[in-house]
């Protein structure tokens, strides 16, 4: 391995995902855009309860991702043992939680806008 650059990582992701690579990139880009909208509009247009609901669903999605990830790789949660394993898993969970939560906030803010 050695010297994993961003370019190399991108190429490897492309190899790993094959035909699903570009659709997935588009999906992530759309999600990132939604997250951005959520961050910008959310604080003003979304009420506290909706925020909590969105972040709650996001957190649930993050935990689900953390529980599912080892199994998807034919491992198990019991085999997540080192500090680095846990950091990786938590980072994954946090990423999913934030992405889903903020996307929901954005959707809620857009709904408010159309209702108004």
């Amino acid at each position: 391995m050695q010297d994993i650059t961003i370019g190399a990582f991108w190429a490897m992701a492309g190899e790993m995902l094959g035909a699903a690579f570009w659709p997935l990139v588009l999906l992530i880009a759309a999600l990132a855009l939604l997250d951005f909208v959520g961050l910008v509009r959310g604080p003003k247009r979304v009420g506290r309860r909706s925020w909590l609901l969105a972040l709650g669903i996001g957190a649930a999605a993050g935990i689900a991702a953390m529980l599912a990830a080892p199994g998807i790789t034919q491992s198990s949660l019991a085999q997540v043992v080192t500090v680095t394993d846990w950091l990786f898993l938590v980072a994954l969970g946090l990423g999913v939680a934030l992405a889903v939560g903020l996307a929901l906030v954005a959707l809620l803010s857009l709904r408010r806008a159309t209702e108004a």
């Binding site: 391995m1 190429a11 490897m12 790993m16 790789t73 491992s75 997540v80 080192t82 680095t84 394993d85």
Partner: peptide, 30 residues
């Protein structure tokens, strides 16, 4: 990643990442 510590992440690299790294290498991309 401690080279002498057993863990899940090195397994993920072998199970998921290594083939992609290999085919990327053949194409001079990684």
């Amino acid at each position: 990643i401690d080279p002498l510590a057993e863990g899940w992440l090195p397994w993920v690299i072998k199970e998921v990442g290594l083939k992609a790294a290999y085919t990327a290498m053949l194409q001079g991309k990684a």
